[in-house]
Nucleic acid binder design. Structure first.
Lengths: 169, 169
DNA sequence: CTTGGAAAGTCAACAAGGCTGACGTAAAAT
DNA sequence: ATTTTACGTCAGCCTTGTTGACTTTCCAAG
């Protein structure tokens, strides 16, 4: 079951698939994700928001005019859970919810000016860290980074990711 | 502030540092982390546990005999929060808490046989996904993946990561 | 034109897992 | 002898997720 240290007959080519290597990858994900969220978390706290608000703000900014159902699919949470967050953002004037033009049942979501300001504060902080990590690791590492992450996603998540990736190419 | 599409005088060498590229990295992290936790989450649900239990189990397994204070530093949560999780695991017979031999104030934590069984179920699921992602992306990508993740950690997290990495080399 | 179903919003209740603050006990260190 | 450390615990709070039930509005198909 567990294959320890000694490299087998296949040699170095498969070294990166040992349990040891996989474990390092797992722990790297765990610790890196903490860093990934640390800066936004600090900013959000100032405004009394949490990560859930950040996610909503991020994806509304990414696809302005998106519907609630759309956002639900992207975020993978329940309507009730998203609604609580969305209500706060609308009440605080960071998000605008317009009745759909074509289909009046839908609500099209947009960031207000204030919403855009917070979004930019959050994403700049997150980009700063990402930029520094990219710079440290170099372009080759970056492409490997993204390849592995993509391969780690569930099919549905990957669909969401690719869909967004192809906007503003 | 935002630098859009057109490559500047530096050419392709810095393309990976555009806001566009950074954004893709950010979203990749978001979606990949969901995949990363999906399999363990399903398993944990069967036993009525959550991610917090998984983390405790993982790191107790990694450094058997570790103390509560140690675990606290690794996990980055409060004593009260960890205690709730630890109490459940001890009561359910997955973790053993022995009074320290040298320092009787300390508690040394170990997985029991049952604990080891669950740990192995969880980590095998997680390794399976990581292995598949590594295989898809290839060895070069894997090293880039880890480099970027390491560069993304806060110094304190990186210390934890490196400390663990160097056990069982 | 009626009706079925989709999109959205809302209420209530609950759970996991974070947090702070305040104590208490045992044991080590000074 | 006193202070500090390690651990445990009680109480209460918050965010963010869940289920279930119900309503309103509106599109679309029969």
């Amino acid at each position: 079951m567990a294959n320890g240290g000694s490299p087998g007959a296949h040699g170095e080519a498969l070294l990166f698939l040992t349990d040891e290597q996989l474990r390092k990858g797992i722990e790297a994900m765990f610790f890196a994700y903490r860093g990934f969220t640390a800066d936004p978390d600090r900013i959000l706290e100032k405004y009394g928001y949490g990560r859930a608000h950040h996610r909503a703000i991020h994806f509304i900014n990414r696809t302005p005019g998106t519907t609630v159902t759309n956002l639900l699919a992207t975020l993978g949470v329940t309507k009730q859970s998203l609604n609580r967050v969305l209500r706060a953002l609308v009440e605080d004037g960071l998000v605008e919810s317009r009745v759909g033009a074509r289909d009046k049942r839908e609500r099209n979501l947009y960031l207000t000016e204030d919403g855009l300001v917070l979004e930019s504060e959050l994403s700049e902080a997150q980009r700063r860290r990402m930029r520094s990590a990219y710079r440290t690791a170099g372009p080759e590492a970056v492409s490997g980074f993204r390849e592995v992450l993509e391969a780690m996603m569930d099919p549905e998540q990957k669909r969401q990711y690719v869909r967004l990736k192809e906007i503003n190419t």
